[in-house]
C-alpha cells in the first residue's frame, strides 16, 4: 500500500492534507496512534516547507511490516546549507508566511525529533527528497 498525495505550492490554506491522510488512514488498521502522530507531525512540517519554499511537490506513504515510510519529493530550489537550516530558530520563510503562524525555523528540527530516521537529499537548483521513517515497535511517545 503506497498512497500518493499532491502537495500544493504557495497556498498554505491547502497544505496539510497529506499529513491528515497519513494520520487517518493507518489508524484504521490498528497501528500505534503515537507512532502515527509522530509521522503526521513530521510529514506536516515537510509539507509546509514544500508549500512555502518549493512550489509544491508530492508525498508517498508506504506502510510495510514494522514501519511507515513517507517520501516527499519536490523540484524546488533545494536547501543551500542544511546544517544551518537544521538549527532551531533559523528561518528563510517570507513575512507573509510568518503572518500565517509558520516560518519559525522549527520545522526541520521538529521533523528530526519525531522521525526515527530522517534523510534529506537536496541539490541546490534541482530539488529536495525527504524520507521520514517511523518504526512501529518502539513504544516511543
Amino acid at each position: 500500500m503506497s498512497p500518493r498525495y499532491e502537495v500544493p505550492g504557495g497556498d498554505l490554506s491547502l497544505a496539510g492534507r497529506a499529513s491528515a491522510e497519513v494520520k487517518r488512514a493507518p489508524g484504521r488498521l490498528g497501528v500505534d496512534p503515537a507512532a502515527i502522530k509522530r509521522m503526521a507531525v513530521a510529514t506536516h512540517e515537510a509539507e509546509i516547507n514544500m508549500a512555502i519554499h518549493a512550489g509544491g511537490g508530492h508525498a508517498e506513504a508506504e506502510i510495510v511490516p514494522g514501519k511507515i515510510v513517507v517520501t516527499l519529493r519536490d523540484e524546488g530550489p533545494g536547501i543551500a546549507d542544511l546544517e544551518l537550516e537544521m538549527q532551531e530558530g533559523y528561518s528563510t520563510a517570507p513575512e507573509h508566511i510568518r503572518e500565517l503562524g509558520f516560518g519559525a525555523g522549527m520545522g526541520l528540527a521538529n521533523m528530526k525529533r519525531n522521525a526515527d530516521e530522517l534523510t534529506i537529499d537536496s541539490t541546490p537548483g534541482a530539488g529536495t527528497t525527504i524520507m521520514i521513517m517511523i518504526r512501529l515497535d518502539t513504544g516511543r511517545t
Binding site: V41, H44, G101, M106, G107, N110
Partner: peptide
C-alpha cells in the same frame, strides 16, 4: 500560541 510552528514543536 499564535505560532503554529511552536504548537507543532
Amino acid at each position: 500560541a499564535d505560532l503554529m510552528s511552536d504548537v507543532m514543536a
